[in-house]
Structure formats: structure tokens, C-alpha cells
Write a protein that binds this DNA or RNA. Sequence first.
DNA 1: ATGGTATTGAGACTCGTTCTTAAAGGAACC
DNA 2: GGTTCCTTTAAGAACGAGTCTCAATACCAT
Lengths: 168, 168
Amino acid sequence: MKTDSVVGSGGSQISANTYEEVAERFRAYLATQSLRMTRQREELLTAVFHAPRHFEAEDLIKTLRERQGHVSRATVYRTLSLLEECGVLRKSLFGHNRHFYESVVGRHHHDHLVCIRCGKIQEFEEPRIEEMQEQICTRYGFKILDHVHEIFGACENCQNEPTEARKH
Amino acid sequence: MKTDSVVGSGGSQISANTYEEVAERFRAYLATQSLRMTRQREELLTAVFHAPRHFEAEDLIKTLRERQGHVSRATVYRTLSLLEECGVLRKSLFGHNRHFYESVVGRHHHDHLVCIRCGKIQEFEEPRIEEMQEQICTRYGFKILDHVHEIFGACENCQNEPTEARKH
DNA sequence: ATGGTATTGAGACTCGTTCTTAAAGGAACC
DNA sequence: GGTTCCTTTAAGAACGAGTCTCAATACCAT
């Protein structure tokens, strides 16, 4: 996996890599699994490439529905999983229940500060935390496959807004 | 919130605090919200107190169903949220979708290594990570309310098991 | 072009969770 | 104790995200 090229923080497109590079990686992965490149998978890849930095599965479904080339819900979910498996996408938490995806090709690993009021997502990078994670896993003989590290709270703008009262 | 008494790692009961202390905290919270202590809420609290360290909402529903004092599903979820709000319970991730709860009264903050094969949960404490989190939030003017830091992977025992092949 | 897979769409289904509604239960006041 | 005014409850319907089923269709190596 190459993750050495870097992207400035704050952009809204997914990656510094070209569509062709990403498509190539996907195609290669499909080949290793004896899976095929189809019209739907290609269309999805394009949609993902043009999606905002952080998007939810339903967004993608909606986007694809609006175009002529319809792709079914099941296929969207199936393909998102494939893209996750081959390291093109990463799935994160948007609040305690919802998920969002983001493209990771050509980007450094990072985690998120999620504002629970306005939904804003701020990325952060902290290699020292990653390193400590590794140490912890070593300590317990645990083989790390994946992790979720999301911080929920209020972004600068939302801290001043009044809080809602409990509704009975 | 007092969280200064400590509990050894590995026990299966939830906390060093007595039931009365926890009940008192809950009652106090209810009072501040003009909510009432009811038979159901009391029964749930007892069930939570006797639940294993990490449990899911459905476990609790099942447990309560087996006793005479039945509590409805909706009430269980409502009460779990209340217990979370008042700092008695914490909700964490058990795999990318499922949730589990654990009691936090009288316990140090910790996070989890979750084995995705056998489901074993290993707790870990790393104050330096927490501290860095704080720093990051300060850097972005973010007010942290909550965080999720779960590491998924294979525990020592499960690392040797063969992996399953893709099913088409 | 053929054949053997892989893939797809549509909708049924699951699962965890929340909502709705009428009925029952507290609490405060008389 | 009775009245009044909430709050709470149970049961099941509803919800939303995601998965499964399966017959029809698309790939692609030959």
C-alpha cells in the first residue's frame, strides 16, 4: 500500500491520486479475488472519487439514483465493502451510530474530531498516539487489524449555541 | 463526578461502589431532571449492577424477561440512556456496529481491545493518549464531550486460527 | 459464440433502536 | 383520601441502515 504522497488539510476532494491510479488499484484487487470490473463498480468508483471528503453510503445511493446509470442499494453496499477491503476507502464513525466513508489512497492516516451539533469533521494526525496503540497491542499480544478513534464534542462555532432542554 | 476509587482489572462485576451509592447518584440525577424513580428503573439498575462487566442492551432485556418483574424493551433503552447521561454507564463499540455498555462508577477511564474472532474484550489504560487527545482538542478549539477509541483485531488465542475464505 | 462464473436488482428481511398511544402511576395540593 | 396534572409505561408499529435471496443478466477466457 502506498500512502506516501500527502494532501493538505481542509480540501474537499478525496485525494491527490488520479482516478486512474485508484481505478487501477481497485481493478488489481478485484483480479486477486477473481472478481470482475462491471459497469456498476466503475460508476461507483467515479462517484466516490467525486464525493466530498466525508460521505455516507446513502449520499452515494442518492447521487447514483439521480443519474441515468442506476445502481442498486445492495450493490452500493457490496462495492463500498470491496473498496474498503482494498484500501481505497476507510469507514469511520459519525456520531455513535452513523458511519461515513473517506478515501485514503495517497493520504496519511488520521482520525477525527466530530462536532455533534453541526456535523463538522476536523481531521487530526498524531503519530505518537498510533505508536502507543502499537505498544499496547504488543503488551497484550494482540494483532491490530483496525481501530476507531473518534472524538465527539462541540466545535469552536457550536460551543456558544445554547443547549436544548430535555423533551419529555 | 467521583471516579477516584479503583478496581483491579479482570473482575467480572461492575464496580467497587455499592449498589446504594450508584442508586443514589441515579436518583439525584433523576431529581435534577424532574424525573421519577419507578419500579422499572429500579429493577433495571439492579440488573445492570449484576450484569457482567460488558453487556449489550439485549442481554439486559433477556435477563429482565426471565424474572417476574417484566420491563419493556422501550423502557430498557430509555433507562440505559439515562444511566449513560448521569455517568453510571458508558457505551462502547463491539465491532463496527454493535454496542456494549459497561459501568464506569468508581472505575478509571479505559479503552478496549476487541477481538473480532472470539469477542473477547481487553481493557487498557493509557493516560498519555488521553492527554494527547486533550492537547489536540485545545489546538482546534474543540470541546470534547466523549470519545471512542476501540482497537479491533485478533487476541493472542485467535491469531493462530485459520482465516475463512471469501464466499461468493 | 459458448459456457461457467460472478454480478445484479428488487424487494423481503433483519436487527437494533425509537416512536406512538392509550392506560396506569407518582407527586403535590387540597 | 381525593383531585389534578403531569410523567411513565407496555406493546407493538415503525424506522433506518444494512444484508440476503434468487432469478435474470453480464463478464470474459476459450
